[in-house]
Each structure stands twice: as structure tokens, then as C-alpha cells.
């Protein structure tokens, strides 16, 4: 049974752009606000703890998953990417001697040197993963699979 007067597509996009936005759009305002606060707090604790964003590295398949989890956070993710690399880079160049690749790796290493980097990166990844669940939950509510 499909929920009346709502679009599943709009709910998913709203959930991606603003954590909890999908629930807010679907009329679950209190839950939406709680999700917004929880995801935002998790993300900013990650930033505070010197967390870093992932880059796609063709030689490391798991880096695709890390980058995907980062992007799932929506526009907020741009903040951590800018803070990590000084620009909005998403992949390492294929050539290991490429000047841009060397600069990106150096920027990443500067973050990794911080003692709290592991915690920060985990917080940022967790915020992205939470947002994936929120997008799926908003979809389920929009199509009437969940109340």
C-alpha cells in the first residue's frame, strides 16, 4: 500500500540531502529531527577528531566502499572532503607518480598522523552508513511498507 500524497523519490532525495529530511517530508517530524541531530553530531565529532574522507584507489577495492559511505552522507560530506584534501577530490590518479596523486596522499597522511584520526574516520563513516539506512527507511515509509 503506497502512502498518499508523497513521492518515494522526493523522500529519498530529501533524506540524502539532509539527514532525517526524508522522515520530515513524510510527516515523521520528531523522528526526522532526532535523526538529523544524531547524524550531525556523529559527523561533527568525526570532524573534531580529525577524521578523513576516503578516496577511490583502484588498487584497494575497499576504498570504493569507504568513498560510497562518505558520499551517502550528502552535501555535508563536502565539508570533510574539503578539510581532508583541500579540494573536492574523489579518486587517486591511476599513475602513482602523478603530482596530484602525491599531493592527495600527502594531505591524507597529514590527517592519519593525528592520534584521534581512527576515531574520527569511524565517526564520519558511521554517519554516512546511518544516512543510507535513513534513505532506505524513508523509501519503505513512502511506499507504505512501514508505518
Amino acid at each position: 500500500m503506497r502512502s498518499k500524497g508523497v513521492s518515494a523519490f522526493v523522500a529519498c532525495v530529501a533524506a540524502w540531502i539532509v539527514p532525517g529530511g526524508g522522515h520530515y517530508y513524510l510527516g515523521k517530524r520528531k523522528r526526522g529531527l532526532v535523526f538529523f541531530l544524531v547524524v550531525l553530531t556523529t559527523f561533527f565529532l568525526g570532524i573534531l577528531n580529525d577524521g578523513r574522507s576516503y578516496l577511490v584507489d583502484r588498487e584497494q577495492p575497499l576504498s570504493y566502499l569507504g568513498t560510497f559511505a562518505n558520499i551517502a552522507l550528502g552535501p555535508l560530506e563536502l565539508v570533510s572532503r574539503q578539510l581532508t584534501f583541500g579540494k573536492l577530490a574523489y579518486a587517486l590518479p591511476a599513475d602513482p607518480n602523478d603530482a596530484e596523486g602525491v599531493r592527495l596522499l600527502a594531505a591524507m597522511r597529514r590527517k592519519v598522523m593525528s592520534v584521534t584520526n581512527e576515531y574520527g574516520t569511524t565517526f564520519i563513516l558511521a554517519a554516512g552508513l546511518m544516512n543510507i539506512l535513513l534513505i532506505l527507511d524513508a523509501y519503505d515509509i513512502a511506499i507504505g511498507r512501514k508505518a
Partner: peptide, 20 residues
Amino acid sequence: MIRSHFLNMVIFSGLVSVFF
């Protein structure tokens, strides 16, 4: 910056618990 392992773990657990 939160340097305490335990505090980080407690905060993380709290946030994830509220979320779920």
C-alpha cells in the same frame, strides 16, 4: 579532540543506540 578511548566508545555507542 577527544583523546579518551573509553569516552569515544561511550559517545559512539550512545549515538548509535539512539539512532537504532
